[in-house]
Protein backbone atom coordinates (compact mmCIF):
# COMPACT_ATOMS: atom_id res chain seq x y z
CA UNK A 1 0.00 0.00 0.00
CA UNK A 2 1.35 3.39 -0.96
CA UNK A 3 2.37 5.78 1.77
CA UNK A 4 -0.68 7.85 2.75
CA UNK A 5 -3.22 5.35 1.42
CA UNK A 6 -5.33 4.01 4.26
CA UNK A 7 -7.79 1.91 2.29
CA UNK A 8 -7.42 0.16 -1.01
CA UNK A 9 -9.91 -2.17 -2.71
CA UNK A 10 -9.61 -3.90 -6.04
CA UNK A 11 -12.42 -5.87 -7.66
CA UNK A 12 -14.27 -5.98 -4.35
CA UNK A 13 -17.48 -7.98 -4.54
CA UNK A 14 -19.95 -8.92 -1.87
CA UNK A 15 -22.91 -11.20 -2.29
CA UNK A 16 -25.61 -12.25 0.18
CA UNK A 17 -27.74 -15.33 0.04
CA UNK A 18 -31.38 -14.29 -0.24
CA UNK A 19 -33.79 -17.18 -0.47
CA UNK A 20 -32.15 -19.61 -2.86
CA UNK A 21 -30.42 -16.81 -4.81
CA UNK A 22 -27.33 -14.72 -4.23
CA UNK A 23 -27.78 -10.96 -4.19
CA UNK A 24 -24.69 -9.12 -5.40
CA UNK A 25 -24.39 -5.97 -3.28
CA UNK A 26 -20.93 -4.94 -4.56
CA UNK A 27 -19.91 -5.87 -8.06
CA UNK A 28 -16.20 -5.11 -8.26
CA UNK A 29 -15.34 -1.92 -6.43
CA UNK A 30 -11.91 -0.30 -6.92
CA UNK A 31 -11.30 2.45 -4.39
CA UNK A 32 -8.51 4.18 -2.53
CA UNK A 33 -8.95 6.36 0.53
CA UNK A 34 -6.01 8.53 1.47
CA UNK A 35 -4.95 10.04 4.74
CA UNK A 36 -6.80 13.25 5.48
CA UNK A 37 -9.67 12.49 3.10
CA UNK A 38 -13.17 13.71 3.90
CA UNK A 39 -14.92 11.38 1.52
CA UNK A 40 -18.53 10.43 1.05
CA UNK A 41 -19.96 7.28 -0.44
CA UNK A 42 -23.18 8.58 -1.90
CA UNK A 43 -25.95 6.91 -3.76
CA UNK A 44 -29.53 5.72 -3.40
CA UNK A 45 -30.67 3.13 -0.87
CA UNK A 46 -29.48 -0.35 -1.80
CA UNK A 47 -26.53 0.91 -3.80
CA UNK A 48 -24.03 -0.83 -1.49
CA UNK A 49 -22.78 2.13 0.60
CA UNK A 50 -23.26 0.53 4.00
CA UNK A 51 -22.01 -2.84 2.75
CA UNK A 52 -18.80 -1.21 1.54
CA UNK A 53 -18.44 0.76 4.77
CA UNK A 54 -18.88 -2.40 6.84
CA UNK A 55 -16.21 -4.23 4.88
CA UNK A 56 -13.82 -1.30 5.21
CA UNK A 57 -14.61 -1.25 8.93
CA UNK A 58 -13.65 -4.96 9.10
CA UNK A 59 -17.13 -5.75 10.36
CA UNK A 60 -17.87 -7.90 7.32
CA UNK A 61 -15.89 -10.01 4.90
CA UNK A 62 -15.68 -9.49 1.17
CA UNK A 63 -16.85 -12.32 -1.06
CA UNK A 64 -14.09 -11.69 -3.58
CA UNK A 65 -11.49 -9.15 -4.57
CA UNK A 66 -8.74 -7.44 -2.60
CA UNK A 67 -9.30 -5.22 0.42
CA UNK A 68 -6.57 -3.65 2.45
CA UNK A 69 -7.38 -1.48 5.44
CA UNK A 70 -4.52 0.18 7.28
CA UNK A 71 -2.17 -2.44 5.92
CA UNK A 72 -4.32 -5.43 6.88
CA UNK A 73 -5.72 -7.83 4.33
CA UNK A 74 -9.40 -7.95 5.31
CA UNK A 75 -9.97 -11.27 3.55
CA UNK A 76 -7.35 -13.03 5.65
CA UNK A 77 -7.64 -11.18 8.93
CA UNK A 78 -8.62 -13.27 11.99
CA UNK A 79 -11.48 -12.20 14.26
CA UNK A 80 -9.22 -11.20 17.16
CA UNK A 81 -6.91 -9.17 14.89
CA UNK A 82 -9.97 -7.53 13.31
CA UNK A 83 -11.26 -6.57 16.75
CA UNK A 84 -7.82 -5.17 17.63
CA UNK A 85 -7.74 -3.18 14.39
CA UNK A 86 -11.18 -1.74 15.11
CA UNK A 87 -10.32 -0.87 18.67
CA UNK A 88 -6.98 0.81 17.85
CA UNK A 89 -7.24 2.33 14.40
CA UNK A 90 -10.90 2.75 13.46
CA UNK A 91 -13.75 4.84 14.75
CA UNK A 92 -17.42 4.33 13.99
CA UNK A 93 -20.33 6.74 13.93
CA UNK A 94 -23.77 5.25 13.43
CA UNK A 95 -27.05 6.68 12.24
CA UNK A 96 -28.76 5.79 15.52
CA UNK A 97 -25.80 6.88 17.69
CA UNK A 98 -25.54 3.47 19.38
CA UNK A 99 -24.49 4.83 22.74
CA UNK A 100 -24.40 2.41 25.67
CA UNK A 101 -27.56 3.33 27.57
CA UNK A 102 -26.32 2.51 31.06
CA UNK A 103 -23.21 4.63 30.75
CA UNK A 104 -22.93 8.37 31.28
CA UNK A 105 -21.63 10.61 28.51
CA UNK A 106 -18.18 10.49 30.09
CA UNK A 107 -18.22 6.70 30.37
CA UNK A 108 -19.45 6.26 26.80
CA UNK A 109 -16.59 8.32 25.48
CA UNK A 110 -14.14 6.63 27.82
CA UNK A 111 -15.19 3.11 26.80
CA UNK A 112 -12.92 2.74 23.70
CA UNK A 113 -9.94 3.70 25.87
CA UNK A 114 -10.86 1.12 28.49
CA UNK A 115 -10.91 -1.56 25.81
CA UNK A 116 -7.48 -0.47 24.63
CA UNK A 117 -5.86 -0.99 28.04
CA UNK A 118 -2.69 0.79 29.03
CA UNK A 119 -4.39 4.13 29.55
CA UNK A 120 -4.12 5.47 33.07
CA UNK A 121 -7.24 6.98 34.62
CA UNK A 122 -5.69 10.45 34.44
CA UNK A 123 -4.78 10.04 30.77
CA UNK A 124 -8.24 8.71 29.99
CA UNK A 125 -9.90 11.62 31.74
CA UNK A 126 -7.77 14.11 29.87
CA UNK A 127 -8.53 12.45 26.51
CA UNK A 128 -12.26 12.20 27.22
CA UNK A 129 -12.55 15.82 28.30
CA UNK A 130 -10.62 16.90 25.22
CA UNK A 131 -12.94 14.87 22.96
CA UNK A 132 -15.98 16.33 24.69
CA UNK A 133 -14.51 19.80 24.25
CA UNK A 134 -14.19 19.16 20.51
CA UNK A 135 -17.89 18.43 20.32
CA UNK A 136 -18.87 21.05 22.90
CA UNK A 137 -20.36 18.74 25.51
CA UNK A 138 -18.14 19.19 28.55
CA UNK A 139 -21.18 20.26 30.56
CA UNK A 140 -22.98 16.94 29.96
CA UNK A 141 -20.42 14.50 31.32
CA UNK A 142 -22.73 13.05 33.92
CA UNK A 143 -25.80 12.79 31.71
CA UNK A 144 -27.01 9.48 30.37
CA UNK A 145 -27.96 8.99 26.71
CA UNK A 146 -31.66 9.05 27.58
CA UNK A 147 -31.20 12.62 28.87
CA UNK A 148 -29.65 13.90 25.62
CA UNK A 149 -31.20 15.25 22.43
CA UNK A 150 -30.50 13.52 19.10
CA UNK A 151 -27.88 16.10 18.18
CA UNK A 152 -26.16 15.80 21.54
CA UNK A 153 -26.21 12.00 21.31
CA UNK A 154 -24.57 12.10 17.90
CA UNK A 155 -21.95 14.53 19.19
CA UNK A 156 -21.19 12.07 22.00
CA UNK A 157 -20.87 9.38 19.33
CA UNK A 158 -18.42 11.59 17.43
CA UNK A 159 -16.44 12.17 20.62
CA UNK A 160 -16.43 8.42 21.27
CA UNK A 161 -15.14 7.77 17.76
CA UNK A 162 -12.51 10.50 18.08
CA UNK A 163 -11.25 9.96 21.61
CA UNK A 164 -8.57 7.44 20.71
CA UNK A 165 -7.55 9.54 17.69
CA UNK A 166 -8.05 6.77 15.16
CA UNK A 167 -6.61 6.93 11.67
CA UNK A 168 -9.96 6.44 9.98
CA UNK A 169 -13.52 7.22 11.01
CA UNK A 170 -16.36 5.48 9.26
CA UNK A 171 -19.70 7.22 9.56
CA UNK A 172 -22.87 5.57 8.36
CA UNK A 173 -25.60 8.17 7.67
CA UNK A 174 -24.49 10.25 10.68
CA UNK A 175 -27.06 12.98 10.09
CA UNK A 176 -30.04 10.91 8.99
CA UNK A 177 -31.78 11.20 12.34
CA UNK A 178 -30.92 14.84 12.97
CA UNK A 179 -32.63 18.10 12.09
CA UNK A 180 -30.91 20.64 9.87
CA UNK A 181 -29.34 22.64 12.68
CA UNK A 182 -27.91 19.63 14.46
CA UNK A 183 -26.76 18.11 11.17
CA UNK A 184 -24.86 21.26 10.36
CA UNK A 185 -23.37 21.36 13.82
CA UNK A 186 -22.17 17.76 13.59
CA UNK A 187 -20.76 18.22 10.12
CA UNK A 188 -18.88 21.36 11.12
CA UNK A 189 -17.45 19.50 14.10
CA UNK A 190 -16.27 16.62 11.94
CA UNK A 191 -14.89 18.99 9.34
CA UNK A 192 -12.86 20.88 11.91
CA UNK A 193 -11.52 17.62 13.37
CA UNK A 194 -10.50 16.60 9.86
CA UNK A 195 -8.75 19.92 9.36
CA UNK A 196 -7.18 20.30 12.79
CA UNK A 197 -6.21 16.70 13.57
CA UNK A 198 -5.95 15.31 10.06
CA UNK A 199 -8.39 12.52 10.84
CA UNK A 200 -9.67 10.72 7.77
CA UNK A 201 -13.46 10.50 7.46
CA UNK A 202 -15.43 8.20 5.19
CA UNK A 203 -19.20 8.67 5.11
CA UNK A 204 -22.01 6.61 3.71
CA UNK A 205 -24.78 9.11 3.03
CA UNK A 206 -27.44 10.31 0.74
CA UNK A 207 -28.01 13.47 2.74
CA UNK A 208 -27.46 16.56 0.59
CA UNK A 209 -26.27 18.53 3.63
CA UNK A 210 -23.40 16.05 4.12
CA UNK A 211 -22.59 16.02 0.43
CA UNK A 212 -22.08 19.77 0.62
CA UNK A 213 -19.24 19.28 3.14
CA UNK A 214 -17.35 16.56 1.25
CA UNK A 215 -13.90 17.00 -0.22
CA UNK A 216 -14.46 13.94 -2.34
CA UNK A 217 -17.65 12.26 -3.51
CA UNK A 218 -17.75 8.63 -4.59
CA UNK A 219 -21.11 7.71 -6.13
CA UNK A 220 -22.23 4.12 -5.90
CA UNK A 221 -25.04 2.79 -8.00
CA UNK A 222 -26.06 -0.86 -7.96
CA UNK A 223 -22.84 -1.96 -6.30
CA UNK A 224 -20.51 -0.19 -8.71
CA UNK A 225 -18.67 3.11 -8.54
CA UNK A 226 -20.47 5.32 -10.99
CA UNK A 227 -18.45 8.46 -10.28
CA UNK A 228 -15.43 9.49 -8.17
CA UNK A 229 -15.13 13.26 -8.13
CA UNK A 230 -14.08 16.20 -6.04
CA UNK A 231 -16.69 17.34 -3.53
CA UNK A 232 -18.11 20.77 -2.93
CA UNK A 233 -15.66 21.44 -0.07
CA UNK A 234 -12.54 20.41 -2.01
Amino acid sequence: MENGTLVKTKGLTKSYPIGGEHFLALKGVDLEINKGDFTGLVGPSGSGKTTLLNILGVLDNPTDGEVEVLGEDVKKIKAVAAARLRSKMLGFIFQTYNLLPVYTVFENVEFPLLILNGWSAAKRKEAVMQALEWVGLTDKVKNRPAQLSGGESQRVAVARAMVKKPQLILADEPTANLDAENSLNILETMQSLNKDLGTTFLFATHDEKVIGFLKRKVTLIDGLIAADEAGAAA
Partner: peptide, 9 residues
Amino acid sequence: GTLMALGLT
Protein backbone atom coordinates in the same frame (compact mmCIF):
# COMPACT_ATOMS: atom_id res chain seq x y z
CA GLY B 1 -22.94 -5.00 17.29
CA THR B 2 -21.74 -1.69 18.73
CA LEU B 3 -19.49 -3.42 21.24
CA MET B 4 -17.98 -5.48 18.42
CA ALA B 5 -17.52 -2.35 16.32
CA LEU B 6 -15.79 -0.64 19.22
CA GLY B 7 -13.31 -3.48 19.34
CA LEU B 8 -14.63 -6.17 21.68
CA THR B 9 -14.11 -9.67 20.36
